[in-house]
């Protein structure tokens, strides 16, 4: 049985004992099915082109083929301001006029 407390902490959660028991059960059920991936060897699955493994993108792209792909999506370096500070702080749970506010951070 995996100890999910480590992941609970990483994810900034504080589960009740009941919740933790329940979620641990579900966590184990699901993650145990992942072990089947160990049967697959991916050491040849990578770097299709330009030294890049296009692993993060659902769009398939190959430089050599004619298949449509996009890359180099870049923005010109211009400043544009669409929102006032007031508008963006509207939803703040705690703030003074100019700053967002949280309990004191101890360094």
């Amino acid at each position: 049985m995996k100890n999910i407390e480590k992941y609970e902490k990483t994810a900034m959660l504080a589960l009740s004992d009941k919740e933790r028991a329940e979620l641990t059960k579900r966590f184990d059920e699901i993650t145990s099915t992942f072990e089947v991936l160990d049967e697959y060897d991916v050491k040849d699955y990578f770097t299709r082109h330009c030294g890049l493994d296009p692993q993060s993108h659902a769009q398939k792209y190959k430089v050599k083929s004619q298949e449509s792909k996009i890359f180099n999506v870049l923005r010109q370096d211009v400043v544009e301001k669409f929102f006032t500070r007031e508008k963006l702080m509207e939803n703040a749970p705690a703030s003074d006029d100019e700053y967002f506010s949280v309990p004191r951070v101890i360094d």
Binding site: I4, L15, E22, L23, R26, F27, I30
Partner: peptide
């Protein structure tokens, strides 16, 4: 529950 479960699986 489902959100918390997904987050923790993600962390793992």
């Amino acid at each position: 529950e489902d959100v918390k479960l997904a987050i923790m699986i993600g962390a793992m």
